[in-house]
Write a protein that binds this DNA or RNA. Sequence first.
DNA 1: GCTGCGTGGATACCGGAACTATCTTACTAC
DNA 2: GTAGTAAGATAGTTCCGGTATCCACGCAGC
Lengths: 217, 217
Amino acid sequence: MLVSELAERADVPLATVKYYLREGLLTPGETTGPRRAEYDDSHLRRLRVLRLLREVGGVPVTSLRQVVEALDDEGLAVHDTMTLVADVISAGPGPQTQDPVALEIVDRVITAMGWDGIRAESLDRQRLASLVTLLNGPGPLAANVEVLTFYAGVADQLARAEIALVDHSTERSHLLEQMVTGSVVYGQVFELLRQLGHEHHHAQVATGSARPQPVGT
Amino acid sequence: MLVSELAERADVPLATVKYYLREGLLTPGETTGPRRAEYDDSHLRRLRVLRLLREVGGVPVTSLRQVVEALDDEGLAVHDTMTLVADVISAGPGPQTQDPVALEIVDRVITAMGWDGIRAESLDRQRLASLVTLLNGPGPLAANVEVLTFYAGVADQLARAEIALVDHSTERSHLLEQMVTGSVVYGQVFELLRQLGHEHHHAQVATGSARPQPVGT
DNA sequence: GCTGCGTGGATACCGGAACTATCTTACTAC
DNA sequence: GTAGTAAGATAGTTCCGGTATCCACGCAGC
């Protein structure tokens, strides 16, 4: 297919596709003449992934370039690609504080969960420590190991389920695209469900019903 | 305190505080002279909340104005304020699709959860439907009622816990600020923990250990 | 073969968001 | 009385994510 068709099929303005090509987010189509180039299904899939990351995940375009680099590096194991992508994708700027106390709280949670596959350089780990610093600074909120471990337990349920859901036997590129988009979209899905849960339970409190209890019924 | 002190205590550039005042995100201090105004602790707390919503939650400044309006409307019940704020805060633009099929899927999940306190106009509900449309469009991912209900169950655990955690007996303004910031910050905390969970379980898969199982051990 | 649409490629421009800098006037503390 | 800063207003800046325009030219239909 030609660019215009690619753009139309992905429901993306042509100008934007050209922009992505310029930025190196899409590999140029196969040139079939001086003013002619052919694009295939892999381009279409890639473009869809990019739009999803941008629009649903809010991933900035500069980060997208890092994502495609990781995705296209055939020499990289699936696992390594995913950690690379994870470092880039999750929201917020890099960690600004390296408060050792917060880091230790985070590490204790990680240990309590038995999560032994986490790199010390994991940006998520450091970002989490920043948030803990923030929570334990001025203000009424506080994060302790117990609460965080509870959260981690819940998060673990999701992580397990999500990994179990993907078909691990498919080809590398398809598998990665599936995992990356899944992670982003289901992250949003969960966040919305959490908000809906809030809305319901707030209503419960407001109408004078019993306060919701954290664990059992 | 004077503006400069307010800015310093909240660790926000003075120019930014002035900007927020201009935008109506902060109420003007009490004028004690033609070129003098006094700010108090409520301003400081408000400013901290705003920065948190902006930096951690990524809430745009224009939405912040709506948030403060809801927060400052003393005639509004706590519950109603929260739903108003929730509509404004959660990420993404308003819903663009109103696919009846997706909406019905969402509603079935809501019913299955026994969530009867959710307004039909809830933006989160509609945003979720948009995501479901997206998932069930082209591409390998798919969202069915079962999977979504599983997610909703997990989300419900969090929502319960979070509501149980706040001290419901404090004064309106403090309570709301606590709930709003808590919702945003813990949303991020959870997302990071979910990513960490992924990182661990991916590592498990990569090292050839048993694949993680969704529910039990 | 001619024509006119559309292509690939390059470059320039735009609009919104979130600040940031400057300037003016005037109080206030020393 | 004078140096320092506050308040308030206005204008300017940076970054991001696109759009728009331009050009020279090949291809499809006639």
